[in-house]
Amino acid sequence: MALRLFWEFLKIGSFTFGGGYAMISMVKRALVERHHWMNDNEFVECITLAQSLPGVFAVNMALYTGYKISGRLGGAFAMLGAALPSLVIIVVIAAFFNRVNENPTVRDVFRGIRPCVIGLILVPGLSMLRKSKLTLRTFWIPIATCVAICLLGVSPVYLIIAAIVAGLVVARVAIGRTRKNTRKQ
């Protein structure tokens, strides 16, 4: 079973362009619709979990679905299958790229590509901004994050830790408040 999971994720990892989120439908088709290894609800549960935890989304997705289907070994083999194609393909390309890197034609091509890459990173940032449904109380968060990173040189790691701590404090305050209210009643 673990080997079959490895094979399914190897195929998906080799042919899915556009990162982890593009993989969701492929994984669903393979695990839920074709092989019936898990049902719809179990799949959604795995995806939600994979999305909310840190780390590579595709790796998390492989780990959780693999684990659900056939335990630790299943999770481990599914993850290997998801990561291996990237490793092989990129090593081959990197070896080649290092050799042609200085070529003037290649430089011209990448001079055109660089601004495009900036745009392709900006767009998901903006759409996430829309998704975060900013209010008057929270609109400063992305701005402060940007300023801290770009102007003050703060490491994003500290900002993520700050977000976790802030969330815990907000939760603590909210819980304290509901307790007080229930006591009043």
Partner: peptide
């Protein structure tokens, strides 16, 4: 979510 949006834009 808004922090990650800021990270990406940065």
């Amino acid at each position: 979510v808004p922090v990650v949006a800021g990270l990406i834009i940065a």
